[in-house]
């Protein structure tokens, strides 16, 4: 069995008296595509914030490739090889598309706080920027300011920024939220393509996306994981049907 890329052990988060994450334990194997589903307010985004360092957990640990990253700052965690996207597009609005990607590439390319070389002349960085632009399909829009992109383009750029630095564990927070059918299927292809060889953890509402992409699925309900397994196992699980899928069926 391969070594787990990301391990959450009894992770907890309280906001005041409210317990949002109540003892989540999860092990994601390297190379796995893992989806986290759950009803609104289950704490999916909060869980991502705990893993990526945006919030410190109230208890428990997070480890990445066997190293403890609990309570590290976001940039320290990112440097260890974990990158994420956001549910609401979180770009650099007054920079061009290409600049957004370039900034996301700079740290991992080793140029860091360099102020003695031209950013445009770094051949390794520029090559990587071109690759990412081609992957996310925004080559034609490279000089457009990120703030004026269409919604679907912003979502693609959001994923591009997350993967540009070459992190091997990628968290995507609702990458297809608010997209049309055709945009969603294109987004699935994009996610599949850019996460080849990487470990992917994604929060997603669209069940067709989840069953299409994910190797394993975890169901988060009120801050607790009630089931983890393959798509077939999750569909068959009684507990999941009661707590989650059942409500989806009546909605449909």
């Amino acid at each position: 069995m391969t070594q787990p890329a990301l391990v959450l052990a009894d992770l907890r988060k309280d906001f005041g008296k409210a317990s949002i994450i109540r003892g989540v334990s999860l092990s994601v194997t390297a190379g796995e595509r893992h989806a986290i589903i759950g009803p609104n307010g289950a704490g999916k985004s909060t869980l991502f914030h705990l893993i990526s360092g945006r919030f410190p957990p109230s208890g428990g640990t997070v480890s990445l490739h066997g190293r403890d990253i609990t309570r590290r700052s976001p940039f320290a965690i990112n440097r260890q090889g974990l990158a994420r996207s956001f549910q609401v597009s979180n770009l650099f609005p007054r920079l061009s598309v290409a600049e957004n990607i370039r900034c996301a590439v700079l740290w991992s390319s080793g140029h860091r706080y360099c102020f003695w070389r031209w950013a445009d002349n770094l051949a390794d960085v520029s090559a990587r920027v071109e690759d990412v632009l081609a992957q996310i399909g925004l080559k034609q829009r490279r000089d457009v300011l990120a703030g004026v992109l269409t919604y679907a383009e912003q979502r693609a750029l959001e994923i591009g920024i997350a993967i540009a630095g070459g992190a091997d564990v990628v968290l995507l927070d609702e990458p297809t939220a608010g997209m049309s059918r055709s945009e969603t299927s294109r987004a699935i292809e994009l996610i599949r393509e850019v996460t080849v060889g990487k470990t992917l953890v994604m929060v997603e509402h669209d069940m067709s996306v989840v069953f299409d992409l994910a190797d394993r699925i975890s169901v988060l309900v009120y801050g607790e994981i009630i089931a983890t397994g393959t798509a077939a196992e999750i569909k068959a699980s009684k507990a999941v049907q009661e707590a989650y899928l059942g409500t989806v069926e009546t909605d449909d």
Partner: peptide, 20 residues
């Protein structure tokens, strides 16, 4: 320069800069 570009990125969105 790389630092100058990142200064503009931090100006635009200091939170996201931490995640890259």
């Amino acid at each position: 320069t790389p630092l100058g570009r990142m200064a503009a990125a931090v100006r635009d969105n200091p939170e996201r800069a931490e995640f890259i």
